[in-house]
Design a protein around this nucleic acid. Structure first.
Length: 270
DNA sequence: AAATTCTCCTGAAGGC
DNA sequence: TGCCTTCAGGAGAATT
């Protein structure tokens, strides 16, 4: 569920409270996440001063002098800053204590992961082959068209392929394709240059709006109770199978594309 | 080699 | 009311 906007909102939410502080202790209550949490996190991080919190795709990068802690939230993960001594809940798996403030990872489904990377983070296998950031200048219609024309996957699978562009998950792939008027099942090699222009523009617009929307939830990251209450932009396609299309009124169609819930308007999206 | 399917996990929702 | 089944999904791994 955390898509790129939620991850970016998380970054902005936690960074101001932690950057410049030193790790006083690391507590791992449940290390069985998607990959085992490195068993030596505490000695790696203890005493290290957090220099910055960055983001690459849906990974958060906690930069320390000795290395980088990568955090992926999977689909149910969340990070909050809580006061030292706050009792952990059932799915609060990892704490990074910075003195009086604690960065707490909660992840009921445990699809998230932590990685300690020394040296060049960009060369880390999970990051090395990733495509451009959707909101960066490298994500252009030319780039998308070049990656689309020699493949035969669905337009939706193309958008969700991290080698093509990162950070576009199922929800925003649906929304972007709706805005661009492109059917999710359209083969990528049938996307015209004009289609790719509309699609890149739609992706950038949807994600930009969603991030702006997340700004209203920033204060939630230091609450002691409850999950961060992400506000989400009004979704026009995702989850609206059977409902009338917001543009033309035709019944939206729900199908599965690549094992993922997919909704589109058969009239507006070709 | 590219494309598709599988896999991890648990809360929520639906059925009876 | 409550138990059981089904589903959702990020993205790397496995399979076709």
């Amino acid at each position: 569920m955390p898509e790129l906007p939620e991850v970016e909102t998380t970054r902005r939410g936690v960074a101001p409270h932690l950057v410049g502080r030193r790790v006083s202790a690391v507590a791992v209550r449940e290390g069985r996440l998607r990959w085992p949490v490195p068993p030596d996190l505490d000695p790696c991080l203890r005493g290290q001063r957090l220099e910055a919190v960055e983001r690459r795709a849906k990974y958060l990068l906690f930069r320390f002098p000795a290395g980088t802690l990568l955090v992926h939230l999977g689909m149910s993960g969340s990070l909050r800053v809580v006061p030292a001594g706050s009792p952990p809940g059932p799915h609060d798996h990892v704490d990074l204590a910075f003195g009086e403030r604690v960065l707490r990872l909660r992840d009921p489904r445990r699809f998230g992961s932590l990685h300690w990377v020394t040296g060049d983070v960009a060369a880390y296998p999970l990051l090395a082959r990733l495509g451009p950031e959707p909101l960066a200048e490298g994500f252009t219609p030319e780039h998308l068209h070049a990656r689309a024309r020699d493949r035969r996957v669905s337009a939706k699978a193309l958008l969700m392929d991290g080698r093509v562009v990162v950070g576009v998950g199922n929800i925003y792939a649906n929304e972007s394709l709706f805005r661009a008027g492109i059917r999710p099942t359209r083969r990528s090699d049938r996307l015209t240059r004009a289609d790719c222009e509309r699609l890149t523009a739609a992706v950038k617009a949807v994600l930009t709006e969603a991030i702006a929307c997340g700004g209203t939830t920033l204060r939630d990251f230091v609450r002691e109770d409850g999950q961060p209450g992400y506000f989400r932009i009004a979704l026009e396609a995702y989850g609206r199978g059977g409902e009338p299309c917001p543009r033309c009124g035709t019944a939206m169609r729900a199908v599965r594309v690549g094992q993922r819930a997919t909704v589109y308007c058969p009239h507006c999206q070709r």
